[in-house]
Design a protein around this nucleic acid. Sequence first.
DNA 1: CAGAAGATCCCCT
DNA 2: GGGGATCTTCTGC
Length: 207
Amino acid sequence: MKILNRDFFVRDTLTVSKELLGKVLVHQTPEYAVAGRIVETEAYLGPEDKAAHSYGGKITPRTEIMYNQGGYSYIFAIYGMYHCFNIVTEKQGTPQATLIRALEPVTNMEFMSEMRFNKAYTNLSSKQIRGLTNGPGKLCIAMGIGKEQNKIDMCERNGKDDIYVYDDGCKGYEIIASPRINIDYAEEYVQMPWRFTIKQNMYVSRK
DNA sequence: CAGAAGATCCCCT
DNA sequence: GGGGATCTTCTGC
């Protein structure tokens, strides 16, 4: 298994978004480790992209991390109750990122189950199993990811609160490109096919 | 199963 | 003061 390094993330965002499919996202602390396979991503190509937080080159405390070189976590809160987990891409000064929209649970489903439903994994309905990580807000809850995990360098271990992605060699997935979700405000960028999913994976957030 | 509506808060204008 | 890269619950078929 190899952990994705800086060179992987410091590339064009569409390529990174597509190649992340099938890779495994890990959140590891001294207390626990959780992991899920990435099955859905969305590319945000600021500053041109009207859907991106960095549209127009906007720099605020929230978006600042998007200007860093690739390989950092960008986590923002939304609708008052949820978080979205992104990975910064491209070189320093190009404010782009890819949103991780869905995972397929790989390791520590017990942890995910408690975080999401406060129930043992064996007691989940099939609908709840599918609902563990099939959406950007859901996967953050299941993985124990919140604003404390913002701006983590995913290419260096700190030993306390690590997030990284590894390649376990699984490949050959069929990738589908489609328009991004819930960006109605983005005008001509609404229809850009910058959402990528693994075909027929049950954890993809929606058809 | 689909659609509507409410929850809830930080960031930005 | 407004709104959002969402999710859950509730309604009605």
